[in-house]
């Protein structure tokens, strides 16, 4: 039986853990609200951009001189997977589920005889993937110590990917990130980035076909494609960030509850032990008195 003193120590240590998890939960809840608002605010740009892309891509896809970013290199040999994770942990299965999905994808592609390269966004994903797939990593980015995500961050990532693509580093590029479904649920989602035409078929409402394009020498598309890539990445970063805060909030809520249960059990144990000690002492006194 543990001594009363050791039980008291354990209770107080669990209590201070609970205080920390409670505080983290509240911080995550506040950050979640901000992250959701940011993701919400970025949506109009992305939807308009998608519409424009659809209008332009329709005309250009059949053009033999269409830019490679849109139609691909024609080969399907080397794949680049961009894995978006968080920079910090303590968020339940948030980071691990991305790493697992990426690993499965890498194995599946390699079983098909393809070469796979990885690009890690976020510290946790980098650390996890580096363990057994370091030879496939071509780069990583993280936002440790940054207060908020800017569009220029996404643009920088997009530029690195495009530079690699222009050098012929890969044929296809897929983005894997946690989609924010609800506060309780984040699912692993993937978006094809290159070729852009492999993306979701534009919601065809028929009114996109008859635009005048200016300048019409294809340079508009060449400007739009890198921009579109950055927008997609930006959206994934924001979704992932909102998902991370939600996952952390849920995980910390669970931890707080578990700590509460543990405190109850330990307190029960402590009281029983204390009672047993008192009873024992009473018996000793009574039997001592009877012996007289």
């Amino acid at each position: 039986m543990p001594s009363l003193k050791s039980l008291r120590n354990r209770i107080s240590s669990v209590k201070s853990t609970q205080k920390i998890t409670k505080a983290m939960k509240m911080v995550a809840a506040a950050k979640l609200r901000r992250a959701q608002a940011q993701a919400e605010a970025a949506r109009p740009y992305a939807t308009r951009m998608a519409k424009m892309m659809a209008a332009l891509a329709r005309g250009a896809a059949s053009n033999p001189n269409a830019p490679a970013l849109l139609v691909g290199t024609g080969a399907d040999k080397t794949h680049l997977i961009v894995a978006v994770t968080a920079d910090r942990g303590l968020a339940g299965p948030f980071n691990a589920s991305i790493s697992r999905a990426v690993r499965n994808r890498v194995r599946a592609l390699e079983a098909e005889g393809k070469t796979v390269k990885l690009f890690a966004v976020g510290r946790k994903g980098r650390d996890s993937l580096r363990r057994d797939m370091a030879d496939r990593m071509i780069g990583d980015v993280n936002f440790v110590g940054r207060r908020s995500l800017e569009f220029t961050d996404a643009e920088a990532i997009a530029n690195r990917i495009i530079a690699e693509f222009d050098e012929g580093g890969f044929d296809r590029c897929t983005l894997m990130f946690n989609r924010f479904v609800s506060v309780m649920v984040q699912t692993v989602a993937e978006t094809p980035l290159i070729p852009a035409s492999a993306g979701e078929p534009a919601n065809d409402d028929g009114d996109t076909a008859d635009y005048e394009i200016e300048p019409d020498d294809g340079s508009l598309l060449e400007r739009l494609l890198p921009r579109n890539l950055a927008v997609q990445i930006y959206r994934a970063l924001l979704e992932s960030n909102a998902g991370f805060q939600a996952a952390q909030m849920t995980a910390m809520d669970n931890a707080t509850r578990n700590a509460g249960d543990m405190i109850n059990r330990l307190t029960m144990n402590y009281n029983r032990t204390r009672q047993a000690n008192i009873t024992k002492e009473l018996i000793e006194i009574i039997s001592g008195a009877e012996a007289l």
């Binding site: 940011q38 970025a42 109009p44 740009y45 800017e150 950055a230 930006y234």
Partner: peptide, 9 residues
């Protein structure tokens, strides 16, 4: 008229 930046409307 709508003016939209990547961050917001």
């Amino acid at each position: 008229l709508e003016i939209i930046s990547p961050e917001r409307l």
